[in-house]
Design a protein around this nucleic acid. Sequence first.
DNA 1: GCTGGCCGTAAGGAAGTCGTGAGCAACCCG
DNA 2: CGGGTTGCTCACGACTTCCTTACGGCCAGC
Lengths: 232, 232
Amino acid sequence: MRILVADDDPQIIRALKVTLRARGYDIVTAADGPEALAKTISHHPDLVMLDLGMPTLNGIEVIQGLRGWSQVPILIVSGRTDAADKVEALDAGADDYVTKPFAIDELLARIRALTRRLPAGEEKEPVVAFGDIRVDFSAKRVSASGGGAEPIRLTPTEWRILELLVLNPGKLVTRETLLTQVWGPNHTADTGYLRLYLAQLRKKLEPIPAHPRYLVTVLGMGYRFIADGSSG
Amino acid sequence: MRILVADDDPQIIRALKVTLRARGYDIVTAADGPEALAKTISHHPDLVMLDLGMPTLNGIEVIQGLRGWSQVPILIVSGRTDAADKVEALDAGADDYVTKPFAIDELLARIRALTRRLPAGEEKEPVVAFGDIRVDFSAKRVSASGGGAEPIRLTPTEWRILELLVLNPGKLVTRETLLTQVWGPNHTADTGYLRLYLAQLRKKLEPIPAHPRYLVTVLGMGYRFIADGSSG
DNA sequence: GCTGGCCGTAAGGAAGTCGTGAGCAACCCG
DNA sequence: CGGGTTGCTCACGACTTCCTTACGGCCAGC
């Protein structure tokens, strides 16, 4: 988690850097408004902490400059306690406003609150591709880029098995693991239906189902997903 | 924009109700924790204002009860100024914390900041179009651009379901997600009414209701909204 | 080379899910 | 108090999914 700290007071910068780094955050600093804008562009922080009283550029203008193109959460840290200042900053696009002096624990809690809902906004799509197949886990969707644009339909059970295998690329997934994870902890007696679902998955996903390249059998043990580019 | 105000002090309730209604907000009130939870389920507010010092149920427990199934923004209004209280509430899932007494202008600005990023489809147009249908989220209206200019009427439940689906284009929306988001956390036993509402939505929105093109069933898992131009 | 065990494949029935229509109770509003 | 709307239950047919059973092929060990 990367945080940009913009303040013109070197002491505050230093104090925040130490405190936040100790909490595991990756810290980028800026001493004035233009630098804050530039470093937001170059470093893509997950949160911007902004002091309103910086030289060169009004704090409000920095907020507006950011909001013109970015939805990054903005936390204002200011010495001004006047309600009018808070209203102006919040309406310009800031997400929270803390007045100096502040309790460091409260600041940290507000940082957590602001960064918590981040994944809901701009997240990468967890997509895994192999061969002509694209697996989109967030959308629960599989499509073949090559043969026809029609999406491939998987049943819920097929999905669970594919997830277990693809999310552990290269690793062996034992038959017992598959059975307990898909059918429940009490379900360890396999009468042969696991082979059946693997056959169906291969029929739908493998270029040559009879000679599986990605969903490989490990004799007597279980199955393994081999990603593109992996040897063996 | 609907706001739930939960406080055990009738005077505060009354004052906030008047002030917020004057700003155009739709206000729902609750006098204790259980009522706040129940009215959140039944009224689906866009923001929950919570007093920590309510009887019957701890404020923290109310936050947890909401966060178990809802992502609605929570604004804590409390008389406690101690940093530890703020940390506890924010870490439990609250999004902002204001201490009494507060400037009403600041409170309004913080409400605007919290509700600003509400629509899950951030910063996009609040209008989504597919086929001959135009869905206006800000005006809560649906109209058919093709056959006649008269607006299509949706019931509140139909609207909730359509929102969940359209705001997650291409993504799978689980049956369980739909049930908890629309009917509340305790409502997981589906006797078949979800199919019914989907049928009604398709009857009103789909060109050929019997062969849905936009509100697609994913067998055994849930439903999916397919936007125009997407493959499939 | 032979046998036993494991794997892949196919067919078929049981069980579950979905779409649809009919119908009833609760609620809102005039 | 009455009409219309909304929310929900029940029942039925069509379809999909799940799982069992059965059979043939491949590899290991003897």
